[in-house]
Design a protein around this nucleic acid. Structure first.
Lengths: 138, 138
DNA sequence: CTTGACTCCGTACCTAGCTACGGACACTAG
DNA sequence: CTAGTGTCCGTAGCTAGGTACGGAGTCAAG
């Protein structure tokens, strides 16, 4: 599969694939044999899709690389992998919990704001977060 | 309260406060009366903290501005606020659901990888996401 | 009335994550 | 053989979100 096809299937531009390749996020398929063109497996399409998905969820490319290496190397010791996975899991759980805070603040806002009157007194987003937040910054 | 105090209490740099001010994320407190120094209320500290918190959760500054304006204007009609809040709520729920996907993939990984043997065959992160993901990109 | 801490402002610079440009090959169809 | 399309590569440019710099003004303490 050539670069254009991968890009299309993954829903990104060709340049993005080249960019990810330089970043080491996807396989380096230098194939001077075939006219010098890159040749990818369908695996790469999945990888690229995973990258985009993870980005939407707030992971940086560096973090995504970590996520990806969790499954990568057959040589790697399982204990090491577990450790990294556990750390990522903690991050993810933390993120979910904090989003849940925002979620309930928004739900409050929507419930209390029944659609009549002015909005001023019924929008406790900041308040809701303030109280949880006060001394909890890292 | 002057800019340095706000910055310290919110745990950011002075330049960041000025940057947020330019972006319209916090009040514009031009006070030529008091020697030309900015003067902030403690409200601003909360706002800045909220901005940082929301950023960690994957919101852009533009999105955060939207979140913040949900509680802002006493003139705004409640119905409009509700609409925006509902849209944000949908985004948030969606994010949580997708993070939950990653969470369970990581939990699987950790469970299946009992700490012995090689890591190659027990790391279904990509697989777990692939199956959910196949045709669901926006 | 000098010193030091703080602030002012504009501008420049930085990282992350792309995105576009441009000239040179390759490969296919006509 | 000539287009046309796709690819190669390096480099430049772009947006977001800061971060740093430098020269000048403010102000309280000594």
């Amino acid at each position: 599969m050539r670069i254009g096809e991968v890009a299309e299937k993954a829903g990104v531009g060709v340049e993005t694939i080249r960019f990810y390749e330089r970043k080491g996020l996807i396989e380096q398929p230098r194939k001077p044999a075939d006219g010098g063109y890159r040749s990818y497996s369908s695996e790469t399409v999945n990888r690229v899709r995973f990258v985009r998905e993870a980005q939407c969820l707030g992971f940086s490319l560096n973090e995504i690389e970590e996520l990806l290496t969790l499954r990568a190397d057959p040589e790697t010791d399982c204990a090491d992998v577990r450790e990294r996975a556990q750390a990522k899991l903690d991050e993810v759980k933390n993120k979910i919990a904090r989003l849940a805070g925002i979620q309930s603040a928004l739900e409050n806002l929507i419930q209390e704001c029944r659609g009549d009157g002015p909005a001023s007194s019924c929008c406790p987003i900041l308040d809701a977060l303030d109280t949880e937040d006060k001394e909890s910054m890292t």
